[in-house]
């Protein structure tokens, strides 16, 4: 479990020298095996929160514990980073080697693993993201979605328990986005890896077990996708996207009370209207 306990994070803005409160007394427990989506506008603190999960940032106040290990404990830094992997937005910034398999091997090599074991881990990781056929290719020849899957494989080769995805699909086209989301869901469901997905896309958030909405450094809403996305008026107030079907359900419900208001997906709506 990752336990975020009353975390506040302050940083100084370079240009103005003002102190900014990026996180304001945030508490959140992330359970093993969970798939959590964190939504919110740019500047709401979601990426700052993500970077606390593997000690890229440390709290100004409060604590973050990964499997009961405090991230502020410098001696445990590498244990924590091995347990919590991170995938970032820009696929081009995450690949370092000249071939796909070398790139995936980078982490295990740095851990000082035996070559035979590295081989095994790389093969497994590439198979899990469906990129085995590309192992000898140069990363620059891949599409955005494929690059992101290689970046994910690089993380998986480290056998993390938790993977934090920081807007992994923001720079991808619809095909790439689908590839990455399918990979993310498979890792969660089949491999039991805990997934924390920081995103702007509510189509992605709908797939999570739990959705957390942040604004101005605070968690303002949390619940199952259904609980969160049926609060249409509140989400609109925050200028967040609402799934069109959820919005339509709210409108239909206003006119005809027998139509349920808590509908989120096309299939649910079809069942509701044509039982």
């Amino acid at each position: 479990m990752i336990r975020i306990h009353h975390v506040t994070h302050m940083f100084k803005k370079e240009s103005t020298k003002h102190e900014v409160k990026a996180l304001d007394d945030v508490s959140l427990d992330i359970l093993e095996g969970e798939h959590i989506a964190v939504l919110g506008h740019n500047g709401c603190g979601k990426s700052t929160l993500a970077k606390h999960l593997n000690a890229l940032l440390l709290p100004t106040a409060g604590t973050v514990e990964v499997d009961a290990v405090d991230t502020a404990n410098e001696a445990d830094l590498w244990t924590i980073r091995q347990m919590v992997g991170m995938v970032f937005q820009n696929p081009d910034n995450q690949l370092v080697a000249t071939t796909v398999e070398e790139d995936v091997a980078f982490g295990p090599e740095n851990m000082g693993m035996e070559p035979a074991q590295i081989r095994q881990r790389v093969d497994e990781a590439l198979a899990l993201v469906g990129m085995s056929a590309f192992k000898d290719k140069g990363p620059h020849l891949l599409s955005g979605g494929q690059k992101q899957r290689v970046a994910i494989a690089g993380i998986i080769a480290m056998r993390p328990k938790y993977i934090v995805f920081d807007e992994p699909t923001a720079m991808l086209d619809p095909t790439g986005r689908r590839e990455v989301m399918e990979t993310m869901q498979r890792l969660n469901r089949e491999e039991g890896i805990t997934v924390i997905n920081i995103t702007h896309f509510m189509e992605e958030a709908v797939l999570a077990d739990r959705v957390v909405v942040m604004e101005r450094g605070r968690i303002v809403l949390s619940g199952t996708p259904k609980e969160v996305f049926t609060k249409v008026d509140l989400l609109k107030q925050m200028q967040l996207d609402v799934p069109p079907v959820a919005e339509l359900a709210a409108l239909l419900h206003k006119e005809q009370k027998q139509i349920a208001a808590d509908i989120m997906t096309i299939e649910e709506m079809v069942t509701e209207l044509c039982p």
Partner: peptide
């Protein structure tokens, strides 16, 4: 071609398939 249609168009199409 592998492109999507807006979600509400998709909904209307599914409803029509189901007889509405």
């Amino acid at each position: 071609i592998g492109l999507d249609v807006p979600s509400l168009s998709r909904l209307l199409l599914r409803l029509k398939q189901r007889g509405l």
